[in-house]
Simulated assay, not measured.
Amino acid sequence: MTWEPIDLSGITDEVAAGIDGRPEPALLTREDGAGLLYPGMVNGLHGESGSGKTWLALHACAQEMRAGHAVAYIDHEGDPRSIVARLMDLQVTADQIVRHFRYSQPETPFSDGAGLLLTGLQDEEVRLVVIDSTGEGLALAGAKPNADDEVARWFREVPRRIADHGPSVLLLDHSAKAAGGELWPIGSQRKRAAVNGAQYYIETLSPFGRDRPGAAKLVCAKDRHGRYIVGQQVATLHVTPGDRLRITLAAPEPTERADHGGFRPTMLMERISSLLEREGALSSARIEQSVTGRREVVRRALTLLVDEGNVTRSHGARGALVHTLSRPFTTSPRTRGEVINGDLDWPVTAGARSNVEEPPNHMD
């Protein structure tokens, strides 16, 4: 790209003819066929440790490999044995892994091997590139996670450059620590602008482990192209362990949809409920200031809480509307104080590993 103006005549002709060119998410598909990741763009997935980020990323890889497409996994945190074992857990065959899975564990900055990697992505028509994780990738490049200019430079030089060669890029990251900041990963706000596809937050609904089924929800934090709205639950991840591990990505339950057919901002509704439970009665202005999210979506969430009887609304001093919690709202079946099991590296199908005992793996 240069500073010279772009000739838009061809684009205007296509738009006028009804070919608007707006992209659609086509990878990491739900059971109903709807996709979550945009091809040729940078997408993100973040959540707490143990929330299932790596499992979901490998589920996306497995979908592509079973369809005969090549994928690449740039691993800054794990090890190849663990990743291969998980793929076999997901019923990906050894032949499919050898033919379609490109795994790398770089020890030098991207610039040292960029040419070879990018050429390989094009030659093999790689559809998906997972980078696990953003924080470790930044560290390898010597970039500070809170330095805006260094973060922006890394996004330009690594994930955006890879996406420009065709693949969908999926970045795995950790959630911000600050209360109410779950919708964005930890570190510089430059990460928000750098994602030109979609960003999702994964939250555990019920803990899952070696012998315990569980679930997590995916919430939209950003969709550059408007397929999903901020705060909308876009999918539910179900994990069922056993001799044959099963992972499914389902469309949101009907309870996540408003009666008029739109989507209910249940994440913000739960956040407002928790705020009122913690702080007591609050005005509309105080709630909008305290809850992270677009103001119009926060207002909609508050209105739904009032309409459904979770919150009562009354007039206070100087005409202010005061809101009081009458019944807590929650989307999570887990009880308060329950610890989420972060050790998700359960044994694979018989024969997939050797009998040599490995050290514990702390990946998601």
Rank of each mutant, 00 (worst) to 15 (best):
L344I: 13
T335R: 15
K222S: 12
L325R: 11
I202M: 08
G309L: 12
I340P: 01
L28H: 05
P254G: 05
S168Y: 04
E4R: 13
F263G: 00
G33T: 06
L268Q: 09
T240N: 01
H100D: 11
H362K: 07
I74V: 15
R81L: 11
D112T: 14
G40T: 01
Y38M: 09
D148E: 07
L276W: 07
A251Y: 06
E358K: 12
A198N: 10
R190N: 06
R294H: 14
D20N: 11
L237H: 05
R294G: 09
G44R: 15
H69I: 03
I247V: 10
L128T: 00
P360R: 13
V71F: 02
D345L: 01
A143P: 04
D343R: 08
G209H: 10
G33P: 07
I11G: 00
A114D: 04
R278Q: 15
R190S: 10
A143M: 10
V348Q: 02
G337I: 11
D32F: 10
A251R: 09
D7N: 11
T2G: 10
G280W: 04
A176F: 05
L321W: 04
P5A: 06
G115N: 08
D13P: 00
E253H: 14
P360H: 01
L118G: 01
T236L: 15
Q289A: 15
V158K: 03
A114P: 02
T303V: 09
K177F: 10
A352V: 12
L121H: 07
D132M: 04
M267P: 01
A60S: 04
P159D: 12
A176L: 11
D243K: 11
D148R: 08
H69Q: 13
N196R: 04
V92F: 08
T330C: 11
G21E: 04
K144A: 12
H59R: 01
N43W: 13
H59A: 01
E150Y: 01
L344E: 01
A352M: 03
G135Q: 15
M363Y: 00
P145S: 08
L218N: 07
L58N: 00
S168C: 14
Y38H: 06
G262Q: 12
Q122T: 09
L268E: 07
V98Y: 07
C61G: 00
L249A: 03
I272N: 08
R327H: 12
S354N: 12
I162Q: 03
E125D: 13
D75P: 02
Y200K: 03
A141K: 01
L56I: 05
L56W: 03
T303C: 09
L205T: 11
S290K: 15
H174L: 11
R161S: 13
R156N: 14
R246D: 00
L344K: 13
L282E: 05
Q91W: 04
Q189P: 04
D20P: 00
A57V: 02
P254I: 05
M269F: 09
S290M: 15
T248V: 07
S332Q: 13
L325H: 06
R227C: 08
R66N: 14
A57I: 02
A17D: 13
G44Q: 15
R156L: 14
A352N: 05
L116D: 10
G209K: 06
Y103H: 06
Y201A: 13
F155S: 02
E124D: 15
A60M: 04
G52H: 01
